[in-house]
């Protein structure tokens, strides 16, 4: 469970202080499917970075599964990120010199998990993402949709409780985008908390809960009726 209490995040730009996040209080339950929408500069990416522990709030508290993660040391935050949070980026962020399998393996390597177990889990992930034949291909040899599926496999290989996706379909054509979204939704159905930042209204409409942000504040928080 994610709980934000009175989160502020200020940036200093010249002599001006920009309130990227202004008094955000938000609770996200396990297994929710949440979309964060809003115009550029509304603070949605800052919110996502903060949820992913890539950024620290200027003030306020962040509880992840009941623990106050704002108090953790840098090392502990890294370790929390490794175990509990998966990121999916608009630009995929795959390492071009590594194969698809090696890219997926990275979080396991960083966690210091034994090589045998790593291979098993990677091949399992490749299978569930339909990427078996692409395992030894490097990112430049993959299509956009395949790259994003590799990125999703990498984000979920540690079986995190939260999956954060920042415009996951932004660099994909419609068909590949839909495939990626369906993949993410499938993961959500298996229990992962899915938080998607997007401009895309149709994408936002698919989620069970939609947050609209404006000028660092949550403008609306709609829980859609579950239509299945």
């Amino acid at each position: 469970m994610i709980k934000l209490e009175n989160i502020h995040r200020n940036f200093q730009v010249g002599d001006q202080t920009v309130h990227a996040l202004n008094d955000i209080t938000l609770t996200i339950n396990d297994g929710e499917y949440l979309s964060v929408m809003g115009p550029s500069g509304s603070g949605k990416s800052t919110l996502l970075n903060l949820l992913g522990l890539l950024d620290q709030p200027s003030s306020g508290k962040y509880f992840l599964n009941g623990n106050d993660v704002t108090e953790l040391s840098e090392d502990m935050q890294a370790s929390t990120r490794n175990k509990n949070i998966g990121f999916v980026f608009q630009v995929f962020h795959l390492i071009p010199r590594l194969t698809a399998a090696e890219n997926i393996e990275l979080p396991l390597v960083l966690a210091g998990i034994d090589e045998k177990i790593r291979k098993q889990r990677v091949s399992h992930a490749l299978e569930s993402m339909n990427l078996i034949e692409r395992a030894e291909h490097k990112p430049p040899q993959l299509s956009g949709g395949q790259r994003q599926r590799v990125a999703i496999a990498r984000a979920t290989i540690m079986q995190p409780s939260v999956l954060l996706a920042d415009e996951p379909t932004g660099n994909l054509d419609q068909k590949a985008g839909l495939n990626v979204i369906e993949t993410l939704e499938q993961l959500n159905q298996h229990g992962i908390t899915l938080i998607i930042v997007t401009h895309d209204e149709t994408l936002g409409a698919r989620s069970t809960r939609s947050i609209r942000m404006l000028d660092g504040r949550i403008e609306s928080d709609n829980i859609a009726s579950w239509t299945g």
Binding site: G52, L54, E74, D75, A78, S79, T80, R81, N82, K83, F87, H93, I95, L106, P107, L110, A111, R154, M158
Partner: peptide, 16 residues
């Protein structure tokens, strides 16, 4: 830089 950022987002500590 972006690779280092990525590694950090995947849970690499500064020490790593």
């Amino acid at each position: 830089t972006s690779e280092i950022g990525l590694l950090k987002s995947l849970g690499a500590s500064g020490k790593a």
